[in-house]
Amino acid sequence: MHSEPLLQIAGLNLRYGSSHVLHDISLTLGARPLTILGRNGMGKTSLCNAIIGLAPHFSGSIRLAGTELTGLTPEHRARLGIGYVPQGRRIFRSLSVEEHLTIVAQKGGDWTIERVYETFPRLKERRRNLGDRLSGGEQQMLAISRALLLNPRLLVLDEPTEGLAPAIVSDVVALVREVSQQGMAVLMVEQNLHAALAAVEDAAILVGGEIVEHMSAQALATDPAMQKRHLALELA
């Protein structure tokens, strides 16, 4: 039986000029959803960009279901099955909600515009509104829906709970759980420890561009000392 993990990263290094942003990252992602935790500036977004193809200069290997992604354009990678929910949501400000959905919607596949509207009735109400007229929570729902409509094999979320109200954070968590239970692989980069641990099953901790811990979410949730060592904000 073919048992290659969906996402396989080996020896990934990323440099911007003289700074070494990612250092020898190796990780695999299969059916169990994974969160990558770390404080600001630890290389989380750079890791996402390397997977998506927005940070082209790196050494090492990133494979999706056995296909080497190195050297492929972002559009090519998206068509291979990566859905991307970027940090800051990056909603197109001059497109309406509906247009966001119609430009990515495909025939066939689990996620359709109807299902998005059922999942997020709020988006249906606001479907004529332009992207820059939405609240942060609405934008996040739209950003996730936009990625889901590609019906990707792997969903990459970069800080999806950033700046959201607690009620909306739990909506996002519930949705991530739902899609991963339905078989979509999930990689969620987060700073919000509790949201991330509630949403996924495994956790890796990124410090200074290196993965320093890799464990189950449950183990991390019950280890306050480790949380404090790597993730707590240092207050001056």
Binding site: G53, R77, A78, R79, P86, R90, F92, S94
Partner: peptide, 24 residues
């Protein structure tokens, strides 16, 4: 039109459009 929406999206955020799989 859909084509027009894609153009507007490209004006707003080209990298994001590519990350959604559009052949830029």
């Amino acid at each position: 039109t859909r084509f027009g929406a894609v153009i507007r999206a490209g004006v707003d955020d080209q990298a994001m459009l590519r990350a959604l799989g559009f052949p830029i």
